[in-house]
Design a protein around this nucleic acid. Sequence first.
DNA 1: GCAATATACCTAACGCCATTAGGTATGTCA
DNA 2: TGACATACCTAATGGCGTTAGGTATATTGC
Lengths: 115, 115
Amino acid sequence: MLSKELIAASTRPILLSILERGENYGYALLQEIEKISAGQIVWSEGMLYPVLHRMENEGIIESFWQEAEKGRPRKYYKITEKARPIIQVEKQQWSTVNQVLKKLWKPVKPIRNST
Amino acid sequence: MLSKELIAASTRPILLSILERGENYGYALLQEIEKISAGQIVWSEGMLYPVLHRMENEGIIESFWQEAEKGRPRKYYKITEKARPIIQVEKQQWSTVNQVLKKLWKPVKPIRNST
DNA sequence: GCAATATACCTAACGCCATTAGGTATGTCA
DNA sequence: TGACATACCTAATGGCGTTAGGTATATTGC
């Protein structure tokens, strides 16, 4: 169970990275992330759908309805050209923080003793 | 300039990791993170002080006033024993997300062409 | 002497966003 | 026929970063 802050920070980068590999629909994305993270990351629908709508409003992704062989129609999302630079910035920002944390998590060098 | 979501997700882990290495006071922490991140991460006071107060209320850190050689007294913070397991969980959570992103950012293997 | 700047702390109003908790609709299986 | 999985959506709530203030001390420049 991730903290809500970490969810907030990682959802967009993860979503865009998944969609970068191919279009997909909301419900499948919920299962996809759970699978990729080996059950570590679980998204709620109440979080995901608003995020998708917001990103569509911003023009980062776009949607189209598609009939499934069975069940109700699915709303597929795909990234737009506008998404590319955003993904780059997000990667860079994530790396910045990750490098700082990696640095801080390195054990402190003990002071060499002269004995 | 980091996104506010990434700030929210990283502030506590970073703060606790810095304080794990030694007690420090608020204003110095602002400069410390800027230095460690080579200017990439800049915290605002309006973000930092409430975070410190919240963590103190939760018993994760504790504070004491100390006179400086010059200027006003400083409020130093140090981690408590309660912080240790929390830091561990945060490290683990961060690593989980980081591994997922690393996986997603690996270039997709192109299909070998028979030409 | 006095204004500007750096240090060092604090807080209130605002807006964004995940959570919680609902709702609708279709198809399958017992 | 009732339960469950699939598949979409939204409203109310609370937490938290941003913005924009405030207070106090010490130094530096005019």
